[in-house]
Amino acid sequence: MTPKPEFYPNEQPEHPLTLKSMMGAKEGNFGSLFCAGCGYGIIGQLFTKVFDKEALDPLAYPLVLGIGCYTQMVTILHHGIQKIVALHGRAPAIATGLKLANPSLKPIVMTGDGDCLGIGTNHFVHLCRRNLDCLVILFNNGIYGMTGGQVAPTTPKGYKTGTTMGPAFENTIDGVQLALAAGASHVARITIAHPRTFMKYLKTGLKHEGTSVIEVITPCVTYFGKKNVDNGGNSLASGGAMLQWIRHSTTWRNQAALLDDDELAGKYVIGEFKLDGGKLEYSEQYDQIRKRAMKSGDDGTV
């Protein structure tokens, strides 16, 4: 057995939320596992902050994570939340099982662009179609970060990756439009350069009854930034440069309405796209069916 690392006994956590995190609560202090400039530390912190502020019951919000760099986020997320790491792309299906077996739960799915829009698109689309009461937070960094920077279905055209001969040329997939088409009842996109709005959407998503999809544009400095330059030829090899690039690549939804397709090419349109509180949620619908079936007393023998 490896020896437990010794922490400095008098050291105080640098961040007040550290002690709310899983490893922080366990060890008294904990650092981030992410690369310099990565957005996942910010997302984990904002999530924990919102969850703590809203004083939600952690046992009612099980968290299902897909596979990607963000899986390491379990260490910095709220310590009370039950965390399940699914297989690559399968988190929405596990969340469906959790919710239907125990409708008092509201699963939170954390998934990446490769996880949700690559290998697990099918499950994501059908989760949205059912409008199952579930919050999906979709991290989009435009690259397969954990495996070392391969092209993702979301890699913007013209940027270099590890598995494209020259710049990426494939058309990209739009998670927000996909969720809208599939029938999710709350859909929003935001970037980590807009933390306050992200927290606002997160609060809405946690309280919304139905599928809520929040796509977050987040930087991968190590495998996207270091290989690429922005339109002006400036290096993207730092967290600051990537944040600037994200800010310049985004357009608010109301402004996007005034732009034509050429002007919108390569831009992330951010904002709240849909919030429909009246749409029937799947487990509620099934509960009605169950009540009717139990009343009918038909034993169903064939």
Partner: peptide, 10 residues
């Protein structure tokens, strides 16, 4: 996957 999710929920 839905099945093992439900199994985890008891």
């Amino acid at each position: 996957n839905a099945m093992i999710g439900a199994s985890l929920a008891g």
